[in-house]
């Protein structure tokens, strides 16, 4: 069975790796970044909109905000999202703004509307995305995701940027279509720790992460991620999670290509979540 699964994964990698995916900032959460990006199988509430829309069904109503200093602050990313529940139906929305700060005029916006539904131990979600920006006329895509719980394990399957098309303000105006991204993820939950992993088969991203709660208020986080392209990019990440009343504060620091560059291009993440329901 394992051999068969491995063969399937290898096949998927071989046919979809280095596909023409949207060049966007796709990992805005500090919690995710500290976990090597592996939160696709989590019901993470409002921040799940950037990962797996099915993760919206966490029985909370939240507002989430993150700020990222990417590549030593050359590029910044702001992400704001929110969610609320209507029975088993969850509705959310997100706005993302990516921009450089090195005297280069370029920016990119992404607006997302989300719906998710929980049935027993499974949930399903859908994102509808639109793009805008200094060089983008318009754009559209759809994300589909699911999370299934089995004992202490969660499994997730996500298809991102389905039917994606972006019209760029080039001359002549050029509408470009992109390949969908197929993401598989799994997580193991234990009272003393959480382990998770994910693979974006289309863009060549593979990450693992661990969440070690030291007490109800404080967790330490760690992760490792590689991205496969012309060269392999390696990232070691550390972080912490502080939960206080209705607030969650996550901070992540990533050592990116640290063996070559030290910490000179390492990203810094901070994100905060406010839960209106106080957690259930």
């Amino acid at each position: 069975m394992y051999k068969f699964s491995a063969l399937i994964v290898m096949f998927l990698f071989s046919v979809t790796l280095f596909a023409n995916v949207v060049n966007e900032f796709n990992d805005p959460s500090a919690y995710s970044r500290a976990m090597g990006g592996a939160i696709y199988a989590f019901w993470s509430g409002a921040q799940s909109i950037a990962y797996n829309p099915a993760g919206l069904t966490n029985e909370n109503e939240e507002v989430f905000f993150s700020h990222v200093e990417h590549f030593l602050g050359v590029v910044r990313n702001e992400f704001l999202s929110g969610s609320f529940e209507i029975g088993n139906l969850y509705v959310g929305g997100a706005a993302q703004y990516t921009y450089p700060v090195d005297e280069f005029r370029y920016d990119q916006y992404k607006i997302t509307g989300t719906g998710a539904y929980k049935v027993g131990n499974s949930s399903f979600g859908i994102n509808l995305n639109t793009w805008a920006g200094s060089d983008i006329q318009n754009g559209f895509s759809m994300d589909l995701g699911t999370i299934m719980k089995y004992d202490d394990f969660n499994f997730a399957f996500v298809v991102k940027n389905l039917f994606s098309s972006i019209t760029w303000s080039s001359t002549p105006i050029d509408s470009q279509n992109y390949d969908p991204e197929f993401i598989i993820s799994g997580a193991y939950f234990n009272p003393r720790f959480i382990l998770s992993s994910y693979a974006n088969i289309s863009s060549g991203e593979i990450g693992i992460g661990a969440d070690l709660p030291l007490n109800p208020l404080f967790s330490i986080l760690g992760g490792y991620r590689i991205t496969l392209a012309q060269e392999i990019s390696k990232e070691v990440s550390v972080g912490m999670k502080i939960s206080y009343y209705n607030f969650d504060l996550d901070i992540a620091y990533v050592f990116k290509e640290s063996l070559q560059f030290g910490d000179t291009i390492s990203p810094f993440y901070v994100s905060i979540t406010y839960n209106f329901l106080g957690g259930k």
Binding site: N26, D27, T98, G204, T227, L228, A229, E231, S233, P267
Partner: peptide
């Protein structure tokens, strides 16, 4: 020198 070019996902697309 070592030049690396990253996309927004953090992938090295040229070096």
């Amino acid at each position: 020198y070592h030049l690396m070019i990253y996309d927004m996902r953090g992938r090295i697309v040229a070096s």
